[in-house]
Deep mutational scan, measured.
Amino acid sequence: MPSETPQAEVGPTGCPHRSGPHSAKGSLEKGSPEDKEAKEPLWIRPDAPSRCTWQLGRPASESPHHHTAPAKSPKILPDILKKIGDTPMVRINKIGKKFGLKCELLAKCEFFNAGGSVKDRISLRMIEDAERDGTLKPGDTIIEPTSGNTGIGLALAAAVRGYRCIIVMPEKMSSEKVDVLRALGAEIVRTPTNARFDSPESHVGVAWRLKNEIPNSHILDQYRNASNPLAHYDTTADEILQQCDGKLDMLVASVGTGGTITGIARKLKEKCPGCRIIGVDPEGSILAEPEELNQTEQTTYEVEGIGYDFIPTVLDRTVVDKWFKSNDEEAFTFARMLIAQEGLLCGGSAGSTVAVAVKAAQELQEGQRCVVILPDSVRNYMTKFLSDRWMLQKGFLKEEDLTEKKPWWWHLRVQELGLSAPLTVLPTITCGHTIEILREKGFDQAPVVDEAGVILGMVTLGNMLSSLLAGKVQPSDQVGKVIYKQFKQIRLTDTLGRLSHILEMDHFALVV
């Protein structure tokens, strides 16, 4: 994948999101292997301009796509893939009243899908469409860049269908997702969380590099694949309309690839034109409109599966009536509230959605109805927002919020430890010299600072030695090549209790 991002070429006709291997024109390309080798690009942008032909009021008969309808489940399912879809609609009884809503608040519980998330729908649909058009064949390999849930859905379907599955996901995604993927037989590649989507090191860039190296491999490409919004247009939206008897006044959905909100909203605009569509985008993402909503100094966020630093091709923002931004604290607070007060075992993005819903639905009156999409299960986040310690460490809970008995030293300040200034190293000294210094002084790690004293990161003896043994660096290389740029900081005025929580999850903390 090139470091400079080429513009994806656009073909003359058809839909841009065809499933299957992508040609340089962004659509299915038939021909000899030699032709494909000559024409197939190194990668295709996940934010390529959409060429979708959908228009409100256009006859369904003019759609270029294969459409399906929700099917009634048999008493005995032939395999677990038949437990994807037909998820329950559940009334939220307490939270709406707590925040003064007059309307009825309903939750579409997508964590009841077989793999635990709304992404099971698009995973199965992308595979079925690729099999139907002859792209996927027995023994082929599926590769997908994902925040985890699409990966789980694909790995689940691949396990049943017999495909090899490789999932490329950023490091910030939970260990629970990784464990589930491994249990399903998927191979996992992790990428830096802070890598831009168009960087060769991003999950998108690495996935395309693997595709170019592995024979008979395919990126189904949830960011561009029409099967993504079509899955929701054909099934999720129809289920909502049936469950609500066609009567709903507002739908609120958090947005990642945009397939969920695009597919549902398009069908609702056709069948229930008075329904307002509300999009939820986390602070630090750029999906919301108008652009002024996205202006923030924050560039990272903890909530998973929603928000991006690019506009995915499948996201149709014209069908969203209003956007709201959400933050991590309210997302996790509301997710825990949904679990504790409503018994809905949902993930953090569901918290984002409901946090926005109780604001947006203030305009609705008694007798009206708001539906929220709860995308995934708490299963993926047992060591994250479900953990009091994690919430404390991230600053989303305060010590006084917890009532468990603490040891005698818990409320003492870090400054009472009488710490001395640490050994520091410059980023320009060599790895070999740094190892000598650390061994001589008896230290395992040291902060790396520039000549102005600005902290650049941390270097550890173990990481340097393993990097040297693996051949990633040489003793003569500058130590700046092996620094940890993500590390926890703590102030002298913070409590030892807070430091204790940090050290339970990290090997060190830097006192500043």
Rank of each mutant, 00 (worst) to 15 (best):
D234G: 08
G246A: 05
E40M: 02
T68Q: 14
D221N: 11
E4M: 04
I143R: 02
H22V: 15
P70A: 10
G274M: 15
L28H: 13
C275M: 15
R224F: 05
Y233P: 02
T260V: 07
I80P: 04
S32A: 15
P138T: 12
G151Q: 02
C52S: 15
E37I: 09
R161E: 02
L210K: 08
D140F: 09
E201R: 13
K39D: 11
E201L: 09
A265G: 09
M173S: 10
G11F: 04
K30S: 05
L251K: 04
S27K: 12
S61T: 14
R58M: 09
N212Y: 02
G20V: 15
Q243L: 10
H218L: 05
G96Y: 07
V118M: 14
L241E: 02
K75W: 15
T141F: 12
L241H: 02
T260K: 02
T193I: 09
N225W: 02
K271A: 09
Y223M: 07
N212Q: 12
S227N: 12
K102P: 05
N225P: 06
G96R: 13
A114D: 07
S217G: 09
L56G: 02
R121F: 05
T236M: 10
G153A: 02
T68M: 04
L136W: 08
N225M: 02
L248S: 04
A231L: 02
R182H: 08
I214L: 07
S63Y: 05
V178I: 06
K72R: 10
V255D: 02
M250W: 02
T150S: 02
M173P: 02
L105T: 09
R121V: 02
P145V: 04
Y233W: 13
G20I: 10
S199P: 02
A183E: 02
D140Q: 02
K102W: 05
K25N: 13
L251A: 09
D198Y: 07
L136G: 04
G57S: 14
R276C: 09
D35C: 02
N113M: 02
T87D: 02
P273F: 06
E104C: 11
P74M: 14
T150M: 02
V178K: 08
K36F: 13
M169P: 13
I142S: 05
C15G: 08
L184V: 02
I264G: 04
T260A: 07
Q242R: 10
N212A: 05
P74R: 15
S32C: 02
K269C: 11
Q243A: 08
G162S: 02
T68E: 10
A38R: 08
L251C: 07
I264A: 02
V90S: 09
S147I: 02
S3A: 09
M126V: 02
Q243I: 05
S227R: 06
D221F: 09
G263R: 02
E34S: 05
K36L: 14
S199G: 02
S174Y: 02
K83M: 07
G115A: 14
A8I: 09
K36R: 14
W43M: 10
R51L: 05
E128Y: 13
S3F: 14
G11L: 07
H22G: 04
G274T: 02
H218R: 13
Q222Y: 02
K39M: 14
P16G: 09
S117C: 06
T68G: 15
A183T: 09
P33F: 02
R182A: 02
L251D: 02
T87Y: 02
E104N: 09
